Amino acid sequence: MKITGVECHFVDRYLLVEVHTDAGISGLGESGAWGFLESSAAAVEKFGRYLVDKDPLHIEHHWQYMYRFSHFRGSAIMGAISALDIALWDIAGKHFGVPVHHLLGGPVRDRARAYHHVFGSTREELLAGIKSARAAGFTAVGHLTPFLDEPRDRPFAVHTGVRLIEEAAEAVRLYREAVGSEVDLCVEIHRRLNPAEAIQLGRAIEPYRPFFYEDPVTPDNFDEMAYVASKISIPIATGERMTSLWEFQMLLARGAVQYVRPDVCLVGGISGAKKIAALAEAHHVGVVPHNPLSPVSTAACLQIAACIPNFALQEYPGEWSPPRSLLMSPPIGHDGNGYLMIPSDPGIGVTLNRDALEMLPEVKREVVTRLRTDGSVMDQ
């Protein structure tokens, strides 16, 4: 079996990648470099020229060959490698007639506990979303910010430091009050705080027992994250912006994280995510795969969740409705009790419906960076 071609699809806000073979088997992957999908597609095409006529089952060799090719990497390059790696694993699973996780040591679970995305531009919308997720059977909610999901073109207003912390802590209190102890809260800060603020807020929300405190500060400085972790008693989750095993190693060595958040579409695909999970296991750290993307990402994440012992929770952006739901089949199953079913079909478990591609035209992400009311740039 040999690779005959690589194909990119810009679909909605996503970049999907197909790898075709002369055996009639195609594999499906996705790039997680969401801000630079055009650049990632160019890297896919470049790597694709290398892959043509190669054996698709030599996955680790191809991963190393692409990774070591250039001395300069980043999210666009790693998103491309991730998409191709996922597609090659999809081909391997289909070739052997088994789900990918059967090729990675076999399943240790048959379903994956998930947290449901909750959005809201007002506190009332967020509270309604939490209650709705609980009513749908989810036992964890996430993407749950105490600062509201406001658009990037709206300046972020901060009146006083004390008000910033008090209002955020009050929001988390209300979230906990809304569902009691029936739902785990995954609190998402989106890197908006400096270390001093992150420590103050972390201590203030400790009584509400969040499942984790995600990205309280920017991930650029591992020592900074370790400092915050050392001053609070709630678990920190981070890693969605990281692109390599070695970054996670530095984070773990500093005791800076209790839940790692590798993005399977950014850290080198299924190959990269599996290695990061093993590294985290050696540190008794749980894995919560990052997943804000399409069902291709969800399916790939679930292959990891199926076969690693330290899986903790799966990010789940929610059910898709038409026309998006027509893009993939079969749909990812939810058991109504907080768990996603591990796909049992060969490969990653979902198939692209090419006839539906035109129903979801590309939506480009333009350069829009959040500002504060004083005009300075902030992270979101």
Rank of each mutant, 00 (worst) to 15 (best):
I3C: 03
E7N: 09
A23W: 03
L28S: 05
G32V: 03
A42G: 10
K46D: 14
Y50G: 00
L51T: 07
S70V: 11
A76G: 03
M78H: 02
A80L: 09
I86W: 03
F96I: 06
G97Q: 09
L104K: 12
V108R: 07
E125V: 00
A135Y: 05
A136Q: 15
V141P: 02
L144P: 02
A157P: 02
T160Y: 10
E167S: 15
V172H: 11
V179F: 03
S181M: 08
D184E: 14
V187T: 04
I199A: 02
A204I: 08
E214L: 10
F222D: 03
D223E: 13
Y227W: 15
S230L: 10
S230R: 12
R241D: 01
L252R: 11
A253N: 15
A253T: 12
V257K: 09
Y259W: 07
P262R: 11
C265T: 15
A277I: 13
V288D: 02
P289F: 09
L293P: 02
P295F: 07
S297G: 06
T298L: 05
Q303P: 06
I304S: 02
S321L: 13
R324T: 05
S325A: 15
Y339I: 02
S344K: 14
V350T: 10
T369H: 09
T369G: 00
R370F: 01
